[in-house]
Design a binder for these strands. Structure first.
Length: 295
RNA sequence: GCGUCGGUGGUAGAGUGGUCAAUUACAACAGACUGUAAAUCUGUCGCCUCCGGGCUACGAAGGUUCGAAUCCUUCCCGACGCA
């Protein structure tokens, strides 16, 4: 049997220097970087998302940045598809794919067996379901698929309608919502997790947030909000809120606090992945050594 | 120095005789996540617990009362006003 191709994954808390490390490693192993960040996929979200700049890429190709317009919703499923295409493309050119990002859901989507049923949105059905209440939708789903219905968090009202509708949509098309299954991966993933002690993180975040404002975060937001015919991107306030705290009425103090909180949520997510080998981002030598014996 | 107002849990800030271990918010801690995921949501949050309850608590010390974070006295601290 042929050896499975190796893919390096760099994940972890925000502001720990993932992008830097990715570029460094890419240089060593002839790699190319695929970003796994749910916001950096959008054009126009640069400063607030800490998107890597051309200069910082140091000639290493980066993919899945700026692949969507902020007004349109980009989904995990799209991400997965694009990322997998890119992985194949990189591999056929004899290079090493390096997945780098902090969005756990996105990373799991390519790294684990999370697969998204090929059920396209059913516009007609959605039109009908749109007018139903949450309770009605819940009942419908219960009839169609007990198991999935049980898993839906009844208290998460804001999200539930969307989830219920999607689940019903899938169940109607396939009979049931397929269970998540750990697919045998086509690749070997080497997962490197970066963390920092809270104090260190706090320092780095504070510095970074300061830079963000200096670099013109507020201007970036203004431009996003400005109507298209005036040269902006026409993003609504509501949509802006979805892009996170940097984009909704940010103040330095608040952005710092929220960033720290977010980084903790990231840890909660990544914790369950036992394949991740964790490093403090201060010990880059150890990481290099670790990689050397793996590749 | 005199006068006024105030001192409540990690913070802000409710509560002004029993229903108060004390509303709420924030922070903290833990967790969820099947096409929005930096989003959204859940639980815990004085100490101990055999989860029945027990103990210590609202600046300090006394007092009134069957009962006090809440009333009284003195003291300490803070803000403001007058000197």
């Amino acid at each position: 049997m042929k050896k499975k191709p190796t893919i390096i994954v760099i994940l972890g808390q925000t502001a720990t220097g993932k992008s830097n490390l990715a570029v460094q490693i890419a240089k060593k192993v002839r790699g190319e970087v695929i970003s796994a960040d749910s916001r950096q996929v959008y054009t126009g979200l640069d400063i607030g998302t800490g998107k890597i700049t051309k200069k910082e890429m140091k000639g290493v190709p980066h993919y899945l940045l700026d692949v969507a317009k902020p007004k349109k919703r980009f989904t995990v499923a799209q991400f997965k598809k694009l990322a997998e295409e890119k992985i194949e493309d990189i591999l056929t050119r004899g290079k090493t794919p390096i997945i780098c990002g902090g969005t756990g859901f996105y990373i799991d989507a390519i790294t684990k067996g999370v697969f998204f049923p090929e059920v396209p949105p059913n516009v007609k059905l959605r039109k009908i379901l749109e007018h139903k209440t949450e309770a009605e939708l819940f009942k419908m789903l219960q009839k169609l698929d007990q198991r999935r219905a049980k898993d839906i968090d009844k208290k998460n009202e804001q999200q539930n309608k969307v989830r219920l509708v999607r689940a019903i949509e899938i169940a109607k098309a396939l009979g049931k919502v397929p269970k998540i299954q750990e697919l045998k991966p086509k690749y070997t993933f080497i997962k490197i997790g970066l963390t920092l002690p809270t104090e260190e993180l706090q320092k780095k975040v504070t510095k970074r947030v300061g830079q963000m404002f200096k670099q013109g975060l507020l201007k970036e937001i203004t431009k996003l909000k400005k109507p298209v015919h005036l040269g902006g991107m026409g993003v609504s306030d509501k949509r802006l809120k979805e892009f996170g705290f940097e984009y909704y009425k940010p103040t330095p103090e608040r952005v710092i606090i929220e960033t720290i909180k977010y980084s903790k949520r990231q840890i909660t997510w990544f914790k369950r992945d036992k394949q991740i080998k964790w490093f403090s981002s201060l010990e880059s030598k150890k990481i290099q050594e670790f990689l050397k014996e793996k590749i």
